[in-house]
């Protein structure tokens, strides 16, 4: 019907969209490399001093560690809950009520800011739980839907008669889960891990409510820093965060291919 080559206008529009998406990033990277003591673009002079500055400010050092801890722990807990949940939802799709699957998607359906506030009100204030614990629970809950969704997608194409075959050959059900089911949804588990990790690392709205005196996450610290200072440190932290995400994505691309996350 049409030629294989995309239309000229389509290329132009696509290019403009990319430019629109990329330009802010270019500006941030430029600003991060500036030698000035204030945020500016184009950069005046080239320097890495603002990158060094990140590690000299103890608040940044602490929050980077907190963010990584929360992201890693939250993702692992979400996997521990999400993998069995996704398995049960798929394995017993016929037997289980339909709304049960929806339950695991709820945290993304509720606006995050509402969700964060609700957690603060009911959990942190209600029980007086430590801030780190509140943060961990909040992040676990916001990444759980991604974990359940991605692993469910993987399990949807898994033929459960394979599991039955293994059981009939003498492998106990729990053992079969680890030796037969899990290896066949490995790619889904890795994708879920990465997606959840990045989501947690970049989260602002839920953390905004749950961080408190002494404990904060990196994105919240960036916000706090901008309120007081206008130096390029925020730009360099942003670049650092960006590269962290890019690095993770590059690993996925190398090992699994990105199409996998697009599913």
């Amino acid at each position: 019907m049409m030629s294989d080559r995309p239309h000229f206008l389509l290329i132009v529009v696509a290019a403009l969209v990319y430019l629109f998406l990329m330009l802010p990033l270019v500006i941030v990277v430029g600003a991060a490399l500036s030698d000035t003591t204030y945020l500016t673009f184009p950069p005046q002079g080239l320097s890495l001093r603002w990158f060094e500055n990140i590690f000299e400010i103890s608040a940044f050092r602490r929050t980077i560690i907190t963010s990584l801890q929360i992201a890693l722990l939250g993702t692992l807990i979400a996997l521990l809950i999400g993998i069995p949940a996704a398995y049960a939802l798929n394995r017993f799709r016929v037997e289980l009520p339909k709304w049960l699957g929806t339950l695991f998607v709820l945290p993304i359906l509720v606006p995050e800011i509402v969700f964060g506030f609700a957690l603060l009100k009911s959990f942190t204030v209600g029980t007086g739980a430590p801030i780190f614990l509140s943060l961990l629970i909040g992040h676990t809950l916001i990444v759980l839907p991604y974990v359940v969704r991605v692993i469910s997608a993987s399990l949807a194409s898994f033929d459960f008669s394979i599991e039955e075959a293994a059981i009939s050959l003498g492998s106990a059900p729990v053992k079969t889960f680890f030796t037969i089911v899990l290896p066949n949804v490995r790619a889904g588990v890795i994708a879920a891990f990465i997606l959840a990790f990045i989501t947690s690392l970049n989260d602002v709205s839920v953390s905004l409510f749950l961080t408190g005196p002494g404990i904060s996450t990196l994105p919240i610290q960036i916000l706090a820093h901008v309120e007081q200072f206008f130096d390029p440190t925020v730009a360099s932290v942003s670049v650092l965060l960006m590269f962290l995400t890019v690095a993770v994505m590059a690993v996925v691309e190398r090992t699994l291919g990105l199409t996998f996350l697009a599913k």
Binding site: S161, I162, I167, P173, T176, N184
Partner: peptide, 20 residues
């Protein structure tokens, strides 16, 4: 008796081979 102790050989319609 649970399936894994019944000692029965099963051949499935869709083969059900272990892909990995």
């Amino acid at each position: 008796l649970p399936t894994h102790r019944r000692d029965i050989g099963l051949v499935f319609q869709n083969y059900a081979l272990f892909p990995h």
